[in-house]
Nucleic acid binder design. Structure first.
Lengths: 340, 340
DNA sequence: TATTAAAATACAATCGATTGTATTTTTGAA
DNA sequence: TTCAAAAATACAATCGATTGTATTTTAATA
């Protein structure tokens, strides 16, 4: 048997009913009588008919598909956001195509092209760390396609962003460390080309400033915050004088830094306290458990998707930024007492 | 501006060149002169032409897309397998559509339908835990589409599977525990409808048998091995006499069980030793670090994809099972001595 | 029964790209 | 310069489903 051989025309011929009627019947159009519908769907089943979505999408110019581009699916935050996106999308009868940019600009560009070529109805994207210009996105948006940014906002003028208050969360984490008596807090920051990491860095600085602590450039270590960066950063931190706490802009780097310091017999939090960001599951398992910030990832996915559908249904392209509230999760890595 | 408005016909009109020539030029056909190609691609760029893949796929009956269905993207094993799949696929000029079944049979069924409707060239799947019949898959395969099963094999007669030697790995884990002096080993098993968990269970039993240890039904606790199951299972294990080790058929349940036991002040591995399966990253971070089995996930993805391409290119549908070798990773949760 | 409105179905064009065949243009050899 | 071969381009059908319009059938009313 050949690939997806059966078409509405096969059904049409077998029954002597025009293919337009077959199409309408399969789409449950009121223009087809009940009796005919039954005959058609019975025959469709008999022949193993499987609609060709490509043809349908081509004709209707509607794919009922949204594209999602994220840095990597293995991060809990993104996996959870995708869950939120999929739930909302499937309820609305939309399919979701998940793509990972692996934080590569080139790949992100290609993915956009592919999604464009496949005529997705809209895109939800968390831009890659490498992305510093937005030409590839502008071109897409110029076509009038809706595009929602989440987690990592897009800096250019008019965009729809769904983010958390990174500044505020970062401020709270830092202040939490300060309240617990830590004075020389190193910050592992991400690429400053990205607004998200800029904001987290600003929050850190603002907290120091509020409490009249000095802001020292060398205490801000910039990297891509991958696992290996955490170790490198930890080494750098050890070479700085008096460091008694490290606040990492993501959990990944915090975890590997902690592992490294533990291997060097440095006590956490007694000698160096820790805080991370994102609440990856592993942060609850490591000892001491890692103080971090929980982002409402699932909700973010839902919100982003709903906004996308709003824009699609009302054919508007508003440029609002929606800010969701993160929560500080205090665990054992950041308090001098009470460490079980 | 309207959606993806520019077509080859627009270019055709503007230049007074037939659309067939435009199409050939854009596909770099030798039938079009260099000069014309240049004119066309310049105009295409100028107009912001974006090929409509849907039309192309419809016409050629080739989508250059493969579908991947896995239980969940958040599992490290699957994320890593996907990396292997994507790398291989992209090198061959194929797109990949990732879908998660969330271990639901119903969802898996729908996903197959969607992929079918979108005429993917082939499917790579790790079936859901709930899946016990294969009608939805058979129907797909009956159409002559290639389908590769990985990790969780398909039991029905003729299939192409890429799996690891679960029996052997499980046997080794269990024997490792036995060698370390553990005598009453509980096994957390997954749904026995799934060959994978059957094999892991068999390996466990075989090791006990070899060393003349009794196989006790109540020592085999079956569940879906989710996080919450680990806790439940741990409670059950505590009610059994003399339990001194737990071997869980996945890391997830092992980790949550360990966390629970630790909260009950039970010493690991002194009182109860642990071993898991899959080598989730968290298993290296928990204390004590968890002995587990590493599956060559990335390689599995690559192998599965290459087999798929073989079948596509040679138009064969062989039914081989490829078995990859897992490795036992011995950490601190399973040895009575040397626990740092 | 005749007439007409409503319901059901058929016809035909279309979505955008591809591709076999036909035609025109160019090139090169005689 | 002439003509065949080769190169370049044009024509037209096609993939499978959808949809506006036209036609036929059925049902309802007078």
């Amino acid at each position: 048997m050949h690939k997806g051989k059966i078409t509405i025309h096969d059904i049409s011929k077998e029954l002597g009913i025009d293919s337009s009627t077959v199409s309408r019947a399969l789409n449950n159009s009121p223009r087809v009588s009940k009796k005919t519908k039954e005959k058609i769907s019975a025959k469709a089943k008999e022949l193993g008919y499987q609609r060709n979505s490509l043809a349908s999408k081509l004709r209707t110019n509607k794919t009922h598909t949204i594209g999602v581009i994220i840095p990597r699916i293995s991060r809990h935050f993104f996996a959870s956001a995708i869950a939120g996106i999929e739930e909302t999308a499937y309820d609305a009868g939309y399919d979701v195509i998940i793509c990972q940019s692996l934080d590569s600009y080139e790949r992100e560009q290609k993915l956009i092209e592919t999604l464009l070529a496949n005529r997705v109805d809209g895109i939800i994207i968390s831009i890659s760390m490498e992305t510093t210009n937005y030409n590839h996105l502008d071109r897409y948006k110029a076509n009038g396609f809706p595009m929602i940014f989440f987690d990592r906002p897009c800096e250019t003028e008019k965009n729809t962003n769904v983010i958390i208050d990174d500044f505020q969360a970062s401020f709270e984490v830092t202040e939490h460390l300060i309240f617990n008596g830590y004075k020389n807090i190193v910050h592992f920051s991400g690429p400053q080309t990205n607004l998200l990491y800029q904001n987290r860095c600003k929050g850190y600085k603002a907290a120091l400033k509020k409490h009249k602590y000095p802001i020292r450039k060398e205490y801000i270590i910039e990297s891509k915050l991958m696992e290996e960066d955490g170790i490198e950063n930890a080494k750098k931190a050890l070479n700085l004088p008096n460091v008694d706490a490290i606040y990492s802009a993501n959990d990944m780097a915090a975890i590997s830094a902690m592992q490294y310091l533990k291997s060097q017999n440095i006590k956490i939090p007694e000698q160096i306290a820790f805080a991370g960001f994102s609440n990856e599951p592993v942060s609850a398992v490591i000892e001491p458990s890692l103080t971090t910030v929980n982002q409402p990832s699932f909700e973010m996915g839902k919100v982003a998707t709903n906004i996308l559908f709003d824009q699609l249904n009302n054919n508007t392209r508003e440029n609002k930024t929606t800010i969701l509230e993160p929560t500080l999760i205090i665990r054992n890595s950041s308090s001098k007492t009470n460490n079980n």
